[in-house]
């Protein structure tokens, strides 16, 4: 015995009409709008960005603005290439701080979220600390951290971690609690133990939430690292990008400040794109957010 089909499967038209006959004016308009949209998605940002850079360049040239006030975009790129030997190692330092802080935030945030969902008492006890850590501006805490933590690198990671960790914790906790209640009942009926429930139901349910938190935390860990470097200034053996920018500002080397800024922005964009790509890769098969609809 086999049951073939639901009544829901679509019926094919009996006569196979030529495509042009079905292609009426409205459909053509719709298809054209779709094509334009597909091109505009890429073309528009590029055009607007190019125009903005061109406008910046014209502004500098026409008004004859001195380079120690506003360098032209060409000069910024030139400086980036010329100072690459200084800026690139600094970028690696900042990148290392950012990624280490993000990694620790992911591990710590997820573990703590799991602990919170396993034990109400743990959540009651420790959640307020997490909130306090989140709401206290890192700029105001960082000086203390640099006093207590003698290893400058560790102190910087600590600052970036404090900023990045909360979105992961909050989102993952929410996700772990958002498992479908019928599936939870099913787990009870099949007598799943705590570990199985976590492994087969709660963690997969939490994945989209976690990835949302990761996207926020990725940006925040970079911000945290940069802010901490600024606060540390020259005290914390800092040679990251923020330190270079500070240093350049003391020397009124404005083009190098812009070059450093450009690198930071590029890093931020790269982190965003990687987390967005990860999000798409992990959810594309099943989650609403990653599905295309016509």
């Amino acid at each position: 015995m086999s049951i073939a089909e639901d009544g829901t499967s679509g019926l094919k038209p009996a006569v196979n009409e030529p495509e042009s006959a079905l292609y009426d004016a409205e459909e053509a308009r719709y298809a054209r709008a779709r094509r334009i949209e597909a091109v505009a998605k890429w073309a528009l940002p590029i055009i607007v960005m190019t125009l903005a850079i061109w406008g910046w360049d014209r502004l500098v040239v026409i008004n004859n603005i001195p380079k120690y006030i506003l360098p032209s975009p060409g000069l910024v790129v030139e400086t980036l290439i010329k100072d690459w030997g200084i800026l690139y190692p600094s970028m690696l330092v900042t990148l290392k701080i950012t990624l280490t802080a993000l990694a620790v935030a992911v591990v710590g945030g997820v573990l703590l979220a799991v602990l919170f969902t396993q034990s109400k008492f743990a959540e009651m006890s420790f959640f307020p600390f997490a909130v306090i850590m989140q709401v206290t501006p890192i700029v105001s805490v960082a000086p203390l951290i640099f006093i207590y933590v003698t290893n400058g690198f560790v102190a910087l990671i600590l600052c970036a971690w404090i900023v990045a960790f909360f979105p992961i914790l909050a989102n993952t906790t929410l996700g772990l609690k958002s498992a479908d209640h019928n599936l939870r009942d099913l787990m009870t009926i099949y007598r799943a133990n705590r570990w199985q429930r976590l492994r087969y139901l709660q963690l997969p349910s939490a994945l989209p939430y976690f990835l949302g938190g990761l996207r926020i935390a990725g940006g925040l860990s970079l911000i945290g690292a940069i802010v901490a470097e600024y606060v540390a200034g020259s005290t914390a053996a800092g040679s990251g990008l923020a330190f270079r920018i500070l240093e350049a500002s003391y020397r009124l080397n404005i083009p190098r400040m812009y070059a450093g800024l450009l690198l930071i922005a590029l890093m931020g964009v790269a982190i965003f794109m990687i987390t967005a790509g990860l999000n798409h890769f992990l959810l594309r098969k099943w989650h609403e957010s990653a599905l295309k609809r016509d």
Partner: peptide
């Protein structure tokens, strides 16, 4: 026991 709920209650992932 086996159970069927009002919703299909499948794991979407």
């Amino acid at each position: 026991l086996g159970v069927v709920f009002q919703e299909p209650t499948l794991m979407p992932w």
